[in-house]
Amino acid sequence: MTKGEIIKDFLKKSVLPVAVAALLYCIFKSACIKNGEIDYMWLFILCGLPFGIPRMFAWIVPGGSLGTALPLFLLNFVIGGIIGGFVLVWRLLVAAWYVPLTGYRLVLCVVPAKRKM
C-alpha cells in the first residue's frame, strides 16, 4: 500500500464514521431530552436510523387496514433504528481499531522506493 492509499483508507474507515456519529448526535440530542435528562435509548434508535433504513421494511404485512398498517410502519422504523444503532456501534469500533492500524501501516509497512544510481 502506498502512503496515499493508507491515508484514504484511514479517512474512509475512521474519520468519516466518527464525524457522521457526532453529527447525528448533535442533531438528535435536543429531540431526546425529557425532564432535563437525555433518553439514551431513543438517542440510540434515532442515531441508528440512517444506518438501518435498508433493513427497515423487512416486515411488510399485506392486507389489513390503516389501523394495522400504521403501527407496523412505525414498528419498522423502531426496529430499523435499533439494528442501525448496532451497525453504528460496530462502525465506531472499527474506527477505533483503524487508528493504531494506520499508525502501524505508516511506520512499518511503507517502504521508500530505492533509487537507482
Rank of each mutant, 00 (worst) to 15 (best):
N76L: 03
L49E: 10
L49I: 10
V18K: 01
M56S: 04
F28K: 05
G67K: 07
R55G: 11
C32Y: 09
N76Q: 08
L74K: 14
N35V: 15
C26E: 08
K34G: 11
I60P: 00
F44I: 06
A21S: 04
L43K: 07
P62G: 02
Y25T: 13
I33V: 15
A58P: 07
A19M: 07
K13V: 04
Y40W: 09
V61L: 05
E37A: 14
N35R: 08
L23R: 04
G48Y: 05
G48R: 02
L75Y: 15
I33A: 03
C32A: 06
F51I: 13
A19D: 01
L66G: 09
Y40K: 09
I45M: 02
I45N: 02
M41F: 15
L74T: 11
F77G: 12
I38M: 07
T68R: 05
N76F: 06
A22L: 12
P62T: 11
P71K: 01
D39P: 09
F28Q: 01
I53G: 02
L24F: 12
K29I: 15
C47E: 02
P71G: 07
P50F: 09
Y25G: 11
L24C: 05
F77S: 07
P50L: 03
V15N: 01
E37G: 14
I38Y: 10
L16W: 12
S30V: 15
V78Y: 10
F57C: 13
K34W: 15
E37C: 12
Y25S: 12
G64V: 05
F44C: 04
G48D: 01
M41N: 13
I33E: 01
K13H: 04
F73T: 11
I33P: 00
S30I: 15
F51W: 06
N35K: 11
L23N: 02
P50H: 09
S30Y: 07
K13D: 00
G52N: 02
K13A: 05
V20C: 03
P71F: 13
W42H: 10
L72W: 08
P17Y: 02
P17V: 09
G52F: 03
L43F: 14
L46Q: 06
R55L: 09
L75T: 15
D39L: 11
C26Q: 10
V78T: 10
L72Y: 15
S65Q: 07
G64A: 12
V61P: 02
I33G: 02
L23G: 06
I33Y: 00
C47D: 04
R55Y: 13
